[in-house]
Computed example of a mutant assay.
Amino acid sequence: MKEQPLSVADRGIATDLLFKTKASIKDLSAAITETTTGELHELLTDELHKAIQQHEKIYGFLQDRGIYDAYRVPHQLEKDSSYIAEALEGTGGMQ
């Protein structure tokens, strides 16, 4: 079965989810360094590993569809510019 291209909205949602997952990884990492109990440290470490796995899945999803490529920054910036233009066209140029 052929994959359907993502709509502007779906692309935005998936990208937002990727960034929020990355933020949770940073927050969990910081929280782990502040914990004083082994039980909480273990719980947060488990959550950190889950968040990293989720980030990998979301990134793979976007990369497989050619939407996000963190390793080719100039090319990604061109894509981002075209995504912005496409989104603005869909809203009549209004934000």
Rank of each mutant, 00 (worst) to 15 (best):
1 M>N: 12
2 K>Y: 10
2 K>D: 14
2 K>C: 08
4 Q>N: 12
5 P>D: 03
5 P>V: 01
5 P>C: 06
6 L>M: 10
6 L>P: 05
6 L>W: 03
8 V>S: 09
9 A>C: 08
9 A>E: 15
10 D>V: 01
11 R>M: 13
11 R>V: 08
12 G>R: 08
12 G>I: 04
14 A>Y: 02
15 T>N: 13
16 D>Q: 14
17 L>N: 11
17 L>M: 06
18 L>E: 06
18 L>G: 04
20 K>N: 14
20 K>I: 01
20 K>W: 02
21 T>K: 05
21 T>H: 00
22 K>D: 15
22 K>R: 13
22 K>S: 15
23 A>P: 00
23 A>N: 12
24 S>N: 13
25 I>Y: 03
26 K>L: 11
26 K>E: 13
27 D>C: 13
27 D>H: 07
28 L>A: 03
31 A>C: 04
31 A>T: 06
31 A>I: 01
32 I>M: 13
33 T>W: 02
33 T>F: 01
33 T>Y: 02
34 E>H: 11
35 T>K: 04
36 T>F: 07
36 T>V: 13
38 G>W: 03
41 H>F: 09
42 E>T: 15
44 L>V: 05
46 D>F: 07
46 D>K: 09
49 H>T: 11
49 H>G: 05
49 H>N: 15
49 H>M: 11
50 K>A: 13
50 K>F: 06
50 K>L: 07
50 K>Q: 14
53 Q>Y: 09
54 Q>I: 09
54 Q>W: 02
55 H>M: 01
56 E>K: 14
59 Y>D: 09
59 Y>T: 05
59 Y>P: 00
60 G>F: 08
61 F>S: 02
61 F>N: 05
63 Q>D: 14
63 Q>W: 11
65 R>K: 09
66 G>I: 03
66 G>V: 05
67 I>K: 01
67 I>L: 14
70 A>R: 12
73 V>M: 06
73 V>R: 09
74 P>A: 02
74 P>Y: 07
74 P>N: 09
75 H>C: 02
76 Q>A: 01
76 Q>Y: 00
77 L>G: 09
77 L>Y: 10
80 D>F: 10
80 D>C: 04
81 S>Q: 13
81 S>M: 12
82 S>E: 15
82 S>A: 10
83 Y>C: 04
83 Y>V: 08
83 Y>W: 08
84 I>R: 11
84 I>W: 05
84 I>M: 14
86 E>G: 11
86 E>C: 10
87 A>M: 07
87 A>D: 06
87 A>E: 07
88 L>S: 01
88 L>A: 15
90 G>E: 13
91 T>K: 04
92 G>Q: 03
93 G>K: 06
94 M>D: 14
95 Q>S: 13
